[in-house]
Amino acid sequence: MGFFRRYRLTIIIFVIVLGTLAVFSINASNPNTSSLMGRMALEVVGPVQRSITWVGDKIDNVFNAYFNLVNTAEQNRRLMAQLARLRQQQAATEDLRLANRRLRALLGLSQSKQWPTVTADVVAADVTGHFRTVIINKGSIHGVGPHMPVIGVQGLVGRTVLVSPHYSKVLLLIDPNAGVDVLVQRNRTRGLVIGAGDQGLKLNYVESKNDVRPGDRLITSGVAGVFPKGLLVGSVTTVRAERRGVFSRVTAAPAVDFQRLEEVLVILRQPKFVQKAMAEAEKRAAAPTRPRTRHRPRSSRKPTP
């Protein structure tokens, strides 16, 4: 007892350091253990975050409603003109879509599938500025699952990484941990977009011999299985050929303005690798457990002569 009293401070510090290291080690060896805690944290903190965001939005709306009145007439005129242009464009696009469908049917190619979506509000951002994640107010009870694509009005936003019953955490495209396989829309050059935080996006693995120019639009290639093909990711801003090496250094600007992200759509499309993993987990859970006893049960033993 005297030992503990004498070395109390040292013991407590030792336990704290050991506990912190244990969290690191458990999480590194099995990330799923933290997902249960993560889901619980989302469920506990989510409603509070949602309430604060709701109040903030209301205050913001009051200010916006007042200040927007000043330019409403001018904005209305501009939007009407834009609407007329878009209607013409829509008619042309519809023609192209129908022609595309007919030609694909003639060639025997499969039709692109329309996935169901669910609308969600962004209720919170990341705790620190080091990462780029947001929390949305839709979860597994709304059909959202892990690794589902999230899009905005302007283009790709990111993918869900952690899903609780009512909330989900979305890894944004600009996070350094995010990666998307893309195509340059103009000439179908492939590359890998990596998030670069405030700097936007980096387009990696583009060979110097490929013709990639500033202004080129980047779309998802659909190769990795998470994102459907054809979602707008961003546009190329700078291209610099490296003196050594075969790849160019390409930067891009995301299509989405992440500073003003308020509403998103989750595409309810589970990647095949997640479906497979979930099916295996369900199979394991449903499988009858084998008896652990080394000896056969008494009833199954052969009667001794």
Partner: peptide, 15 residues
């Protein structure tokens, strides 16, 4: 722990 779980990094960093 709560800060780590709500953040995008791996658990243990903020902690």
């Amino acid at each position: 722990i709560l800060a780590d779980l709500l953040s995008g990094g791996f658990v243990g960093l903020q902690l």
